[in-house]
């Protein structure tokens, strides 16, 4: 069998009184792309954020159950959140480079984790930018502001920024929803490239995208993981009536 990178066990999450995730028990494979689909408000983004504890930042959140990365509970007391987030990187919906140079954007993570040596930083920056297939487009202007890039370039820069801390998992929250079709294609190609090295989990509202890029797909509805499994089987012969309705555009 394949390696399991992340496993959740009866994961429940509450925002104040709202029960946002209900008994989610899933397995995410290493070196694969897992797509999370479902109508808006179904909990797929919330689920994604539990995987690197970004939910900690919003006030009244309560979590029950467990999330295991390589078999270790990331919500156990004494877990260093900074180290966790270094292992589990994240790319957001809006391409949001920091208002600084392209180089400083990518070097931000390594610097935060204490790397100061210029040679090392330069190497990391180049590798990450290459890894995000943007090196050729920006190598001549690394010291220029990242805000001058196009939307698609910005998003790939953000992916490079996430890669620079050498994560094992990359979480992507609707990474192409703010992009034009041409940039979307590039980012999708990149995702396929990325799974050779990383475990990729991507939230998408676009079922075609899920079908194109992912190996596994989880379908969420009202906080429940309704159906999980290989993308092929989920799209070709869904076991649950609700999945069938959703992928055939009956709601959502």
């Amino acid at each position: 069998m394949d390696d399991i990178k992340i496993r959740t066990d009866h994961l429940n999450l509450y925002y104040g009184r709202t029960h946002a995730l209900k008994n989610v028990s899933v397995k995410i494979r290493a070196q694969a792309v897992t797509a999370l689909i479902g109508p808006s408000g179904c909990g797929k983004s919330t689920f994604l954020k539990t995987l690197n504890r970004m939910n900690d930042l919003s006030g009244n959140v309560r979590i029950e159950g467990g999330v295991y990365l390589d078999g270790k509970d990331i919500y156990a007391p004494g877990v260093d959140v900074a180290k966790l987030r270094r292992k589990v990187g994240m790319v957001f919906q809006e391409p949001n480079p920091f208002p600084m140079s392209i180089y400083d954007n990518v070097a931000y993570g390594p610097r935060v984790h204490g790397i100061k040596d210029h040679g090392t930083l330069e190497k990391i920056v180049e590798e990450s930018l290459r890894g995000a297939s943007i090196w050729d487009e920006v190598k001549g202007r690394l010291r220029k502001s990242a805000l001058g890039l196009s939307g698609g370039q910005k998003q790939r820069l953000c992916i490079a920024r996430a890669m620079a801390v050498e994560p094992e998992v990359l979480l992507m929250d609707e990474p192409t929803s703010a992009l034009d079709p041409a940039s979307t294609v590039k980012v999708e190609e990149l995702m396929k490239e990325l799974k050779k090295k990383y475990t990729v989990v991507v939230v998408t509202h676009n079922m075609q995208q899920a079908a194109r890029v992912s190996d596994d797909t989880f379908f969420f509805l009202m906080g429940e993981a309704v159906e999980t499994g290989s993308t092929y089987s989920l799209f070709s012969k869904p076991r649950d009536r609700r999945t069938f309705d959703y992928i055939n555009g009956r709601f959502g």
């Binding site: 970004m54 966790l84 270094r86 994240m90 957001f92 993570g109 984790h113 996430a162």
Partner: peptide
């Protein structure tokens, strides 16, 4: 921007 920074482990 803050979220991105936290996500990088800052």
């Amino acid at each position: 921007l803050r979220a991105s920074s936290y996500a990088l482990g800052a």
